[in-house]
Design a protein around this nucleic acid. Structure first.
Lengths: 222, 222
DNA sequence: TGACCCATGTCAGCGACATGTCAGGCCCTC
DNA sequence: GAGGGCCTGACATGTCGCTGACATGGGTCA
């Protein structure tokens, strides 16, 4: 099963692409909204993302940069109306894996998509491990020393984000943004409570507190 | 000797397909007339049938349904100009074994034809099993511990999708998209009701709920 | 045509769980 | 040792998913 996210606000193109991809055997999800796209790309697990530049609400390049800066390495294929060289460079710089100018032939989209998925196949693993804790993205399940632990959606998202950024201190604000979504006000201590619950469920010291800076999961745990 | 019937009224396409199939070693018969196609499919014995929708005199889907309702199980590959999801679903529901959108590459037609012929040769590749539940995709039949269970079309589609993706958590949104088709409004709890009905009919715990994540069928069931 | 049947959607209520809020306590830091 | 950052338990509220009952609507058969 191969899931692909299509981010495109023109409904006609979106429908065409969706049909072609579905027919090629992908499981396709479509969104035309930038915020939504960013959030899904950040929290869900896709084999690849087809990203239109020029979206309402949030620019495609901005979304891509945010994914990359938070370490989501899902391969991204950019679509753009204009084919200017500068824009192409911007896209590649922002971390796109390939680039396609509209209008394009559907076969070409399919070919390029296959290519970037194949290329990325060597990297992606859906298991994340740190210390005694293992996260299985396919099952959305966490285990400690092999024993399954049930986390709620928010707890899960928080833990995965910290794990993806292990070896680095993650500030409360950053963590909140990636757990709850963007532009959520947070003056409360909900995040601290959440951290506490995750710690208790894991039952093993994993998430460290860096007083005044944020939270931290060590890179190598013996 | 492998006979294939091609039902296609566009003479150019018909000629192309005939040439390609003949070249691939099939014995090819062509007709562009719906009545005639139905009659031959009903009385002759083909390894497979390539069926264009949108024929004069008798609609392709209607032909297919008549064959199926009189128990002709010859594998059918549908051709259609439009690739709408609804149409695809209709085709599959009517008993088509596969589906191809025009324009298509001849290699793809050949590959899919080989696939449905091989599948129909009696191999179990169209059987899905998980735990005590078995689904025979060819005959669209579900049984639990060998006892047949009757599912409605929607229930069946939902179950098959979950089974095809067993070992992975499938979100409600994804499941709804593949059960009802894309761009359907989804504010109701119809999907939950459907899940409930499938569970009751199966009578055995198979579909697990991952609260907040989606539904899940385990990969290996003892 | 009318009487039924089946598939499906809708709704309301329930129970369980998820999450936010708050208050008090701990502990590090200066 | 005072203050602020962080933790934790208890509680309140919200949300999710399940279920039974009913409504609807398309098909079928006499």
């Amino acid at each position: 099963m191969t899931r692909v996210l299509v981010v495109e606000d023109d409904p006609r193109i979106a429908a065409d692409v969706q049909r072609a991809l579905a027919h090629a055997g992908y499981v396709v999800e479509v969104t035309g909204d930038g915020e939504n796209a960013w959030f899904r790309g950040d929290t869900e697990d896709y084999a690849a993302i087809v990203l239109d530049l020029g979206l309402p609400r949030m620019d495609g390049l901005a979304i891509l940069k945010r994914w990359r800066s938070s370490d989501r390495r899902t391969p991204v294929l950019i679509l753009t109306a204009r084919g200017s060289w500068a824009e192409r460079v911007d896209g590649i710089d922002a971390g796109a894996d390939d680039y396609l100018v509209k209008p394009f032939r559907m076969e070409e989209l399919l070919a390029r998509l296959r290519a970037i998925i194949r290329r990325s196949a060597g990297h992606a693993s859906s298991m994340i491990t740190a210390g005694e804790v293992t996260v299985d993205e396919r099952h959305k399940q966490v285990s400690v020393r092999g024993v399954p632990v049930t986390l709620s959606p928010l707890e899960y998202r928080l833990l995965v984000y910290l794990l993806l950024h292990r070896g680095r201190v993650v500030s409360q604000q950053e963590l909140a943004e990636h757990t709850y979504g963007p532009d959520e006000d947070h003056d409360s201590n909900a995040l601290e409570v959440l951290i506490g619950r995750v710690r208790r469920k894991l039952g093993t010291p994993l998430i460290e507190t860096r007083r005044g800076f944020g939270y931290f999961i060590p890179e190598r745990t013996a």
